[in-house]
Amino acid sequence: MHLTALPCAPGPGRLSEGPVWDTGRGDLLWVDITAGLVHRGELVDRDDDSGLPDLRLTATVELGRPVGAVAPCASGGLLAAAGTAFLRIDDTGAVTEYADPALPDDGIPRRMNDAKCDPRGRLLAGTMAYDATRDAGALYRLDPDGTVTTLLSPVTLSNGLGWSPDGRLLYHADSPTRRVDVFDHDPATGALSRRRAFADTGPAGVPDGLAVDTGGRVWVAVWGAGQVRAYTPDGTLDAVVTVPASQVSSCAFAGPELDLLVITTAADGLTARQLAAEPDAGRLFVCRPGARGLPVPPFADGPAPVSPYSTSPHRARGSA
């Protein structure tokens, strides 16, 4: 199956990333990593006959440091993986430090990268060196009480987090390997085991962010290829979404029915000639892929959220 995504109205970011549908508020969150911005937007009607919605920017918070990802919190506000720490952003935009993962003190400058909440509302977040030094990153888990646990080390560029519909598998990409790996995941403890290869993106691009649908297909943003590729649970390529921007950074299911695929892209690092050929680089795109996604729970710093893996996937849950 081949699909094409359409650009959305918000202007291009430098490195747009980390889209997540906030089920509590019914809108979309995403970040611009190198600009240090957290964006919120709402779906609106599009002025054409495509049948797809557009996106309208409604709020932006500037953090003053690179921000890899953001998640809604069950208690209200947001949690950001930014710089070298986890930050709370309240509803007024005020920022406070929530937890410090104590990154290695070895002189290698690092930052937080991709992050997402697991089925129990714990935040998994990866790191990377600014210059992508080999094996300088790791994958961490932040529990609601502020405890930080190292789950996977070493990693070069931690990316692409998503869980199977039953919550018992975790998909993760160390991007330079050009491979998405899958782990057994214990929903009760958050422990990972039995790492193995799931899908290889090949020489045409590297795996970045990803999302999982209710059928267990894994939708992978392929940086450098201008595509999102969907793989069946056995790792077979099943669908391709063409994006008119080469640096596809992530994707997420969005909308009240979670039947829209929102795709982020980047303009960062492109030459003037490349930008002229890709005028929409850095924008968000949308398509309707004929699948519904799994809702991402909020960070569980309030009353325990209902697990989105045991109920209808397109109802709003929790609070934010």
Rank of each mutant, 00 (worst) to 15 (best):
P289W: 00
A102S: 14
A252F: 02
E257K: 14
P19Q: 05
H39E: 12
P244C: 09
A99Q: 10
M112E: 02
P10D: 05
D234P: 01
L55M: 06
R40M: 10
M112G: 02
A69Y: 01
T133S: 12
D184Y: 01
L3Q: 05
D143F: 07
D238K: 04
G255L: 08
V95K: 03
S319L: 12
S164T: 10
L157T: 14
S312C: 10
L151F: 03
L270V: 13
S153F: 08
R179S: 15
L15N: 00
R56G: 06
A136R: 02
A254H: 04
R134T: 12
T232Q: 04
T34S: 09
G282N: 04
P104Y: 06
V61P: 01
L79K: 05
D105F: 03
G51H: 05
T189L: 04
L169Y: 00
P279L: 03
A221E: 05
L123R: 07
D181V: 15
G76Q: 13
P165N: 05
D114Q: 00
H172W: 11
T201D: 09
P154S: 09
C73P: 12
H185V: 13
T311H: 06
V212E: 03
G162T: 05
G205E: 07
V212I: 06
R56I: 09
G137F: 02
L261E: 09
A35F: 00
V155T: 10
P308W: 06
L87H: 11
L210T: 10
P165H: 03
V67W: 02
V95R: 03
D91G: 14
A304T: 14
F198I: 11
V296N: 04
G215T: 10
A204Y: 02
V44W: 01
M128A: 08
D181Q: 12
D184N: 08
R288H: 11
S246C: 07
G64K: 04
S164D: 11
D45L: 15
Y140E: 12
